[in-house]
Every structure is written in C-alpha cells, then in structure tokens.
Design a protein around this nucleic acid. Structure first.
Lengths: 208, 208
DNA sequence: ATTTTTATTTATCGTTTGATAATTAAATCG
DNA sequence: CGATTTAATTATCAAACGATAAATAAAAAT
C-alpha cells in the first residue's frame, strides 16, 4: 500500500479508535483494528503522542466552516431563520460520535486546541447571538455597551440546549428525538421567545 | 491510623484523583498523593477496579436527594419558583469539579451506574417538568396523553442549559458567570417564557 | 533480470503497571 | 511487660506497553 493511503488509513482508524476508547487506548489494539502490526505505526508517526496530535488536527479542522459565521449576522433574514439555519448546518458537523467524544476527551485532558476552538465559538457564535438579540430588542449595540459575563451566559444557554443533546447521545448513549432538525428549531424558537424576557434585567444588573 | 479512617481517606483522595486524571490514573500516583506506599491500597481494596467501583458508589449516592423531586411537583407554589428552587438546590450538589468529571468519564466509559442515574433524572425531573408545563398551558395530563420523545427533548433543553454550564467550567476550564444562582434563575425564566411557544406544536406533531 | 529502495513483519528492549509475598513497625491486649 | 494482632513498608513478579533494531517481503528502478 502507498504511504499516503496508509497514513490516511491510520489517522482515520485512530480517530475512531480514540473516540471510542479515549487517548489511553493501546497502540496494539489500534494496530489490530487496522490489520497491521504495531511497529508499523511508528514508521508513520514517531510517537503515540504525535499520532494523537495529528488526530486533533484532522478532527478539529473539519468542524468549523467559516461560512457559518455569516449565517448569524445576515440581517436580511429574520433572526429565527438565521439561527435555525446556522444550528442545523452546525449539527451536520457536530452531531457525530467522533466529534463529541474527541471534544470531551480532549477537553477533560485540558488540551489547548480545545480552548482555541471554544474561542472561535465565542467570537463567531455567542457574541454575535448576543448582538443580534440586542438589536431585536432595541437594546444598545455591543460597540456602545460591551457584552457582559451574565449576558454571554444567555447565549451559552442556547448553545447548551443544542450541544448537550449530542453529549447525551454520544457520550451517555441515551436516545434522542429522531428528528434533530425539529429539535433544533424548537430550541431556537424557545430561546428567541424566552431570552427577551430576561435580557433587559441582565443588562441592567451589569450596568450597576 | 485506624482502618476505617484510612479507607475513607483512600476513597476520598481516589475520588479527587480519578476526577482529575480519569480512571486510567496510576495507582502509584494515587498512593503518592496519599503519602502511603502503593501496595497499601491493596490491603483495603482487592483491585483497582473495586476501588473505582467504590468511588462510583460514594460519588453517585451523594448526588441525589429524594427531597428534590417534591420541589417540582408542589403545586401550591408558582412553577417558576419551584424550578428555580429545584435547580438551585441541585446545583449545590452538581456544580462541582468532582461530580462533573466523574460523571463524564463514567458516561464515556459506558458504566451502568450512569444509566441508572439518568433514569432517575428522567423520572424525577424531566417527566415532571413536562407534566407541570402541560398543566400550566392547560394541555392534557400525561395520564391521558403520554409524553413523547420530542416533548421530553423540551425538558432536556432546560436541563442542558443548566448542566452544560458545569461542563464548560469543570471539563473545559472556561469561566462562567460568578452568580450561578442568577444564571439558573435566568435559565428557568427563559424556559418558562419560551417553552409554551413550542409545546403545543410538539404535542400536535406527536398525535399524528 | 538484477539491484535498489521501500513497505511491513518478527523479535526484542526498557519501563511501567497492577498485583502479591515477605518483612518491619506499630498498636492492642492479657 | 511480653505476646499477639494488625497496619504499613520493602522487595518483587508477571503482564502490558511504548518504542527500537534487525529481518523479510514486495515494489521500483536501472
């Protein structure tokens, strides 16, 4: 087998393997699943750690499409439509066994790529959601009045509804509603109906 | 040191240790933290697995107070008050480094005690929340019309807002709003304002 | 076809790891 | 106090693990 194909095969199977077993999974078990001998792994990667690092790259890079950011901020459409469109698209990448578990395992381990990813989520999702929510309610823009911690927590609530569904399914193995698109739509509508009720209070508390 | 005190000390430190490192943490590292030698652990526990089992018991048992169930169903108080009271009390046990991480690690591992705990959450929290929500909106009681999967998903949304806050903090190491009581109150008020907007549609879809 | 390169395997090393056996130190008890 | 039990340590085992070296098989090149 050609080196490129073999390497790709190793990374792919290692991703599934570590998603299942965690990063303490043994190289011998991985090689068995690949149908090759364990030392062969070390011809393609100098160490187990370097293979794990490669898995991180492979997994994380594929899970953020720069297009998504624009979906939220495009004020030519109703906010509900935008958020539903974004979270449905996002679910296409995120509602996935490998992603959820690698993300949780690396998060628990405290890996830096996790922080970097969450910084993107904050910048491209949470803060924009807060900004749009303010705009809808006729509240001051973030340029005038910065978004505070409690307000950010509000956007995290929507994100929590959305992502915890995946945790329940792929980490705990619980069943979830068959129609996840419908569930996402419910999340967004619930959020947009409920958030304005608490938003003003949050801003008032922040400005004292 | 007396055997009872020593055993309690081992379990306590093992709990912290496994919460940090995961269950692949080495017995030698644990013993080092306890200030004892590694073989001593095997005088108190026949195997590492049995110590882990003991940690499960210790951790999980302390995290569900039977009193909590009653908080949700007591119709002498407004539903908002009840849910706020419940989730604040629950947070006292759940917003905790050890709990969140042991829960996630054991969930990822697929340990059965996790399923048993989640069954309690479903019975004592999620289904009652759906029932109370129906009562508030003048919808049929669960005795008449069983609670469906999409409807349960609605209660999970509130739970997700609540629990994902803990995951963010204790698993990812992200900062959260200082006043968690206020954040919980916001979650509940957002939920109670938003849920009725989608609830009827969910039930209609279920009955077709 | 023979040589050279490269992919893969076999064999093995040095540590680490969970666990046990033998020994020492410290209580406990008559 | 001395005898006996018990807590804890030292020493060590066998298996597992990440990693390396040497050998083989399969392509590629001349």
């Amino acid at each position: 087998m050609g080196p490129k194909a073999r390497e790709a095969l190793i990374v792919e199977e290692a991703t599934n393997f570590f998603a299942e077993q965690g990063f303490e999974g043994k190289t011998r078990d991985l090689s068995k699943r690949l149908g090759v001998t364990q030392p062969l792994l070390y011809r393609y990667f100098p160490s187990k750690e370097s293979l794990i690092e490669r898995v991180y790259q492979d997994v994380y890079v594929k899970r953020w499409d720069p297009e998504w950011g624009g979906l939220i901020t495009d004020r030519s459409r109703p906010l509900a439509d935008r958020l539903i469109a974004f979270y449905k698209a996002y679910a296409g990448a995120i509602y996935d066994f490998v992603w959820v578990r690698i993300f949780l395992y690396s998060g628990l381990k405290g890996v830096d790529i996790n922080d970097r990813y969450l910084a993107i989520v904050k910048d491209k999702v949470l803060l924009p959601v807060c900004a749009e929510l303010r705009h809808e309610s006729g509240l001051p823009s973030p340029d005038t009045l910065p978004i505070g911690a409690e307000e950010l927590e509000l956007a995290w609530s929507l994100h929590g509804m959305f992502f915890y569904r995946a945790v329940r399914h792929f980490a705990y193995g619980l069943p979830i509603a068959e129609n996840t698109d419908q569930a996402i739509e419910n999340d967004v509508r619930l959020f947009l109906a409920g958030a304005p009720v608490v938003h003003r209070g949050i801003i008032e508390r922040a400005s004292t």
